[in-house]
Each structure stands twice: as C-alpha cells, then as structure tokens.
Design a protein around this nucleic acid. Structure first.
Lengths: 203, 203
DNA sequence: AACTTAGTTTACTAAATAGTCAACTATATT
DNA sequence: AATATAGTTGACTATTTAGTAAACTAAGTT
C-alpha cells in the first residue's frame, strides 16, 4: 500500500558510485540526491545521514555480489582455480573500470574503511564484517587446497590474511597510481604466495 | 630580516597529525589553524589551500624521516636484517600509537593517497613519489640479498612490489580493524615472502 | 467516495567553511 | 631613527551544506 518507489535503491547505488569514484568525505548529500534524481526531503525520509546510507548501501551491494562470490568459490571448482579465476576477474574488472571512467578505483570497501575507521565506528563495523567475508572465502579455499595436498598450508587462516593483505595492498596501489598494470601479476603472485610454483597461463 | 616564525612548520605538523588521525576530507582549514595556534590569515599567507599545505607537509615529513630510513637500510647492515628491523619497528610504532591515541593509524601516505587520488592530481603526484621511495629501499635490499645469495630473487623489482603491497595492505587492515596484533607477524611473513625460511626470533 | 499509507516536493533555517583584506607588529638594515 | 621586510590579526563576505517542516500526491483499503 501507499506509493511505490525505488528511490531508496537509487540512493544506495548513487552513494556507492560517488564514494568509489571520489571519497566518502568529498561526497555531499546534495550530490547523492542529484545523482539519484531524488530530492533531499526524500533522502531524509529513507535515511538519517550519509553514514547511515553508506552502511545500508555497503550491505546491499554485498548482497548483490554474494551469489557471484559463492559461484567463484564453489567447492565444485578446484581450490587454486578459484583464486586464479578470482584474481583474473579482479584484473579484468579494474581494466574495464579504467577504460570506462578513466580511473582505476580499487576496492571501495577497503578504501572507505581506511578513510572513515577513526571517525565512524558504526560504518566501520559494517566494513569489517564485509572484509572478513572475503577472508573467509580465501581461508576456506586454502584449507581445501591443503587437504587435497595441492599446497602446504597448515595455518590456513594465516595464509588467508597474508594473501588478502597483499591483494588489497596491490589493489589500493593500483588505485593510487591509476595503473591497472600493477594487477596483471596478481594471479601469478597469488599462486606463488600459496606455494604453488608452476607457471600460470596468461589471463 | 622581517619577523621570525615557525608557523609554517606548525601548520605542516598540525595537518599531518589531523589527517593521520582522521582523514583528509574531514580536516578543515580552521581545525588545522586551531591545532597549529595560527590564525586563518596566516594560513593563507603561507599556503594557497589545504591541498597545497598537505603536499608541503608530506614532503617535509619525508625529509625528516629520510635519515632514519637511510640508516635502517644502510648497506652496512645485512640486507634481510634491514627488513627485520624495519618491520619490527613498524609494529612497535603502531602499538605505541594505539597506546597513546587509542587507534592504530597505519600509513598516512597510503591512506591519504587512496582517499585523494581521484580528486587531487597534484597531491597524488607527491604521494606516488614518496611511495616509490619506500619501494626503492625494498628493491635495493632485495637485490643485495640476492647478490649475497641469501635469497633467490632474480626479479628484485617484482619482489619489492609484492612485499610493499603486502606491507601496506596489512598496515591498512590494522588501521581499519584498529588491531596492531595484525602487524606482529609482519617480520616473519616478510622473511617468508622473501624466500628465507628460517624462524625469526620474536620482536 | 472517504481514508490510510507511503513517498514526494518546495522552500526554508542555521551552521560551517573557504577565502579576502586592510591594518597592525616585530625584526633587521641602513 | 627611518624604513623595508616578514609575518600576524580580526573582522568580514559569500557559499556550501546539513537538516527541517508542512503541504502535496499517488496508490491501495474499506
């Protein structure tokens, strides 16, 4: 009942895009409203603040992405291939983003987390949860690879942390230097980090 | 001649601290002036904008830190020991920062770079240069270690990129999660990444 | 048709912020 | 002592921004 609307979703889409392309602090509520084609009154009808919107948008975009991640890290795929496909996808995606919007944008969760972590405890809690989700995919695949004796990684959690830190570090550096080339080696380096020493065929 | 003043330096100190503890976007010129004990008129006497100040402050703080880096990465120290000391120092420093200001702050250059890279080309050029400086220390030490047959790293530049990405990734994650514990393993993991498999004595 | 609910719109206020300017002050030079 | 130089101050303007409130509108419900 009442009036139908997708303004809430449009606001979440807009804020994600604006934060990713710029930064949290540089994005104003007016800019979000303009991009979403929503008046400010409606903004405050749906959300209390930019922080509130950002938290909702992050959760929502994770819900959107989760099925693809579940498919990529499916137990039906050999564990090391999961990583290969994942990192090749990351590279391809960043190349594409640079082509379409002129900038490598990296990982919005990590960049945003690093920006707001000292100022917005509630938002950062959401971010921590999402980052942990990613690490769990990694850890799970590593444990699996170890069990199948493809690699030796008795401490899967540790290896997952290592790989994730490298991954996010490289992605952020690519953003800073606006150079997707830095990510081309991601699949190869990841295999090496995991202790799988064979040559990987080019992406 | 004229009037003596350290206001310029006080402004640079203030902006570095504020950006590190908060974020670039969250720091206002008024807040910088307050912290530095400088009136806004004086701010604009020395600098054109926050961006201008930030760039100057970054360069200046690098000039301050450079002697310590040169000492740490001195050729008189065995190459792998340089990394050990460096990463142990990073861990100790972040623990100390958390103790004194309640938050792990990570690397101000990396965090700032990731925040402003799409919006402030001039500032990001400065940042890129500083990051490259660090990578050069890494690369140099790796080349040295390889030459001395301590490790096998035929492509020193590649290993340096890898190690740096891991390092900054871990530091940023520690900031986001406000957990210096994530950095305790830094020296050990770094040695492993470098292909030096022996146990490291605890920091 | 009257009513309720959900969402929209416009116009507004109050505060924060960037940036300017002209008068002022302390120091060094001649 | 006069003057030039380097830096300081406070008061000001103009803009941007967050946030509010009340009237309005489109749909479903009875």
């Amino acid at each position: 009942m009442g009036r139908a609307s997708n303004a809430r979703q449009r606001l979440m889409d807009a804020v994600m895009e604006l934060i990713w392309e710029n930064s949290y602090g540089a994005v104003t509520i007016e800019a979000i409203c303009d991009k979403a084609g929503v008046k400010k009154g409606s903004f405050y009808y749906f959300f209390d603040s930019k922080s509130d919107l950002a938290a909702a948008a992050l959760k929502s975009s994770w819900d959107d992405r989760k099925p693809a991640m579940d498919a990529l890290f499916s137990p039906t795929t050999p564990p090391l291939e999961r990583f290969l496909k994942f990192f090749q996808g990351v590279y391809k995606r960043q190349v594409e983003i640079k082509r379409t919007c002129g900038q490598v944008l990296g990982c919005p969760i990590f960049t945003l987390g690093s920006e707001v972590c000292t100022q917005d405890p509630k938002l950062v809690k959401t971010i921590e949860q999402l980052l942990k989700n990613y690490i769990h995919y990694f850890e799970n695949a590593i444990r699996d690879a170890h069990a199948r004796k493809l690699i030796s990684a008795p401490d899967a959690a540790c290896k997952a942390r290592l790989l994730f830190a490298y991954f996010e570090g490289a992605l952020t550096q690519a953003r800073i230097q606006n150079d997707p080339g830095l990510l081309k080696e991601l699949p190869q380096r990841a295999m090496e980090l995991l202790g799988y020493e064979t040559r990987v065929r080019a992406a």
